[in-house]
Design a protein around this nucleic acid. Structure first.
Lengths: 202, 202
DNA sequence: ACCTGAACACCGTTCAAGT
DNA sequence: ACCTGAACACCGTTCAAGT
């Protein structure tokens, strides 16, 4: 109606940000195109000027989540470079924490709401960047002697599978209560990945 | 209209079966209450006589999937009791295969489309049965010396996390292509869980 | 007890129209 | 180039009504 709703300027970024808000407030079920449009006071068809369809908006929101996730991992890497024997455990710990603190964001990022990911280059790029960071951390730990040697891809698959599996099973409440009674979760995580050859200890 | 659509008899089972069909044909996105009702020629409100809401139908469909999954695991256990050193690998292999062959069924079963699972006793029961089977297999392998000793719950968490993580990451195409170029997947799975102390080999 | 049809408040998407 | 509003085909859910 009035001019300030017109030519919003950075409508695209506003839509992504609103999407992240709705995601944490109402979950992935409550995230609709009409919802995010209404939140920033724009017609429900306006998003189509910036996104091909809902999938395209979801990919952008997911990519924003991956940017945040990558930043957290990078910070943890820098922080624990001096303690290589604790580094992998710490990475696993922030992985789990990110998922528990942002459950719906994490689900959107990793569980396949995105069907044709290759169609969204921004998403592909940040995802590849995180995988490269994972590999960098693995090689760093190998050189410091706190992780078994050998093929990096194979160790990446092992560690990532273990941590991701534990995280998703925790997130979806699949573990029976008696599995989690014993110790604190961080200690459990540490023992999970201890099998992968932490040769020297603290 | 005519009498044969009336008093369908076993409408509840028919709805669950139709749901499983739609799930494998059109995926989880294409599974709606109106959809499954239409498939068996009943009004779109008829399901409400047998299910509280859509969640309740989804829980029943998921439970049916878990029944099938449990049967597969049980068969594999019986089949490989004579080869304890291969048993865990074989269980992991059918776990992965079930997921790859029934992707949307697997996602419905494990990724949290069900929110309040404790409200669905059938679902809870079959899920607990499968976990008990897992534990039974672990203890069997421990006694045969093909798996490390120690707390069963902890080993269950380890193995399940690894296999489930690998499976979901495979399912969602999260691994970059170069991770999977090397060898065949079953060999990769075997090496993934080899760290968990397969003391004697074939 | 079990099923139907109208009704309501939501969706994603397309399209002609406005600036 | 960017935004709007009507329109269409779908949803889940409720409710009065039928047998």
């Amino acid at each position: 109606m009035t001019l300030d709703t017109y030519h919003h300027g950075n409508l695209k970024e506003a839509l992504i940000f609103a999407g992240l808000e709705i995601l944490s407030e109402k979950g992935i079920e409550g995230l609709s195109l009409r919802n995010v449009a209404k939140r920033i006071g724009v017609s429900h068809t306006a998003p189509y000027n910036h996104f091909r369809d809902k999938q395209d908006l979801l990919a952008a929101i997911s990519a924003a989540g991956h940017e945040q996730f990558h930043q957290i991992l990078l910070t943890t890497f820098e922080e624990f470079k001096g303690k290589p024997s604790e580094l992998i455990t710490e990475i696993a710990w922030v992985y789990l924490q990110f998922a528990m603190q942002n459950p719906d964001k994490f689900k959107l990022m990793f569980s396949g709401a995105l069907e044709d990911e290759q169609k969204h280059p921004d998403f592909e790029e940040i995802t590849q960047k995180t995988i490269s960071l994972f590999e960098e951390i693995i090689v760093y730990c190998q050189n410091k002697g706190s992780l078994e040697g050998g093929n990096v891809a194979k160790i990446a698959i092992k560690l990532w599978s273990t941590v991701h599996g534990f995280t998703t099973l925790m997130l979806e409440n699949q573990f029976p209560p008696e599995y989690l009674k014993e110790k604190d979760i961080k200690e459990l995580l540490r023992s999970l990945i201890a099998s992968y050859g932490l040769s020297d200890f603290i």
